[in-house]
Design a protein around this nucleic acid. Structure first.
Lengths: 144, 144
DNA sequence: CCAAATTAGTCAGAGCCTATGACCAATGTC
DNA sequence: GACATTGGTCATAGGCTCTGACTAATTTGG
């Protein structure tokens, strides 16, 4: 390994760790058919529902991929598709009952992991980390 | 989107951005058959070569997956397998000529992206970010 | 107001990534 | 030297993602 690993890898390692923890908790709570790829789409669903194309753009996948993942989420009861009143071509993807039920489980695990990280880094550095990442999003997330 | 996105997503967004940039640069330089999955294994190869099982552990994939990726890397000329003098069962995966040639291209792009990030964050916050991520690695990378 | 261009979404097909399970060969242990 | 362990492969299957082609609804320009 290089002496100073590049920032890409440094970002990836904790990301993967968080992901592993959250999906283990979800599986343990009975949401064992929820996958990371599905989550990356699911996370982008807004309060009133979001169009497939918007989800695809925000998750940076093709609309075909997004459609494939939403199909699975729908079949598993995590989301539902309703007609978009503003456009007859489009449908809004909304979070369904089972999706709502999964959110607190994921949120609790995220909070738990973040607490561990904060304990390791100290409150100040943890806040700096979040602040830097949030600022970075401005130039790395086309849909921030 | 939630008001305060979880740290997992905040880590993922710049990671994905960096990855996209690096692979675009590699492809433009003629390394168009190099994939992110291969890179996650390739990055872990040590100076004298590394065993498949070690690569698998460090990249957190199964040895079958690591073997599959190394097969591709070998076929494309990025790595080579040599017998491990210390153990006749094992072979060391070493970076081959084409792999060595790709490294500076990737490194230059990483440096470019990191420079952009530093310009956006300021030198101090950028250093804090790297420091926090490096510290986080202690508790999130089983093979740090 | 209508023809052309654009946009939302689906279908079909292919390739890549990853895992489980079974297996073989070499090594280490006692 | 028998037995458990370790390094690695083969076979198989499932999941993720893409390109290309297509339908239907909407928007735009004249």
């Amino acid at each position: 390994m290089p002496a100073t690993p590049n920032l890409g890898l440094l970002l990836f390692i904790p990301y993967r760790s968080m992901e592993t923890r959250v999906f283990a908790a979800l599986a343990a709570a009975g949401f064992d058919d929820f996958t990371p790829a599905q989550a990356r789409v699911f996370q982008r669903i807004g309060p009133g529902g979001t169009r497939l194309t918007d989800l695809a753009d925000q998750a940076q996948v093709t609309k075909q991929t997004a459609g494939f993942l939403v199909d699975q989420l729908e079949r598993a009861g995590y989301v539902r598709r309703v007609p978009d009143p503003a456009d007859a071509r489009a449908r809004l993807i909304q979070i369904a009952e089972r999706g709502q039920a999964a959110i607190p489980v994921a949120a609790a695990t995220v909070a738990e992991v973040e607490a561990e990280w904060t304990a390791h880094l100290g409150a100040k550095r943890a806040a700096q980390l979040r602040g830097a990442l949030t600022a970075l999003r401005e130039i790395t997330d086309p849909y921030a």
